[in-house]
Design a protein around this nucleic acid. Structure first.
Length: 87
DNA sequence: TATCTGACGATAG
DNA sequence: CCTATCGCCAGAT
């Protein structure tokens, strides 16, 4: 989906978004899962800037993802990315 | 056109 | 906090 790729492409350095947020911003609310598929079948997108709703990193790429995010100055709370959401 | 898939999410226990 | 379930949807087969 072009819309999803565009949203991801527009993420700035050090910026992080959840799969659900990307889907919503792409006009596909509830398609978080589809966003994952797009990333899995695309190249050249800043995939490391997409994390789970809980702040946890992507299942298969947590190691690489963590390094890349930290390199961009993203703050971590243990194994999760700092997200405003935190009841 | 019909199925299958999974880099997800929300909820219940 | 953790596991089990069910719902969801675009893209790949």
């Amino acid at each position: 989906m072009v819309a999803v790729a565009r949203v991801i492409r527009d993420l700035q350095r050090g910026e992080v978004a959840t799969y659900g947020q990307v889907a919503a911003r792409a006009g596909l609310p509830g398609a978080a899962r589809a966003v994952g598929n797009v990333l899995a079948n695309s190249v050249g997108l800043p995939w490391w800037r997409i994390v789970r709703a809980t702040g946890e990193l992507a299942v298969h790429k947590d190691g690489e993802q963590r390094r890349r995010l930290r390199r961009e100055g993203v703050r971590f709370d243990g194994d999760r990315v700092f997200l405003a959401r935190r009841p």
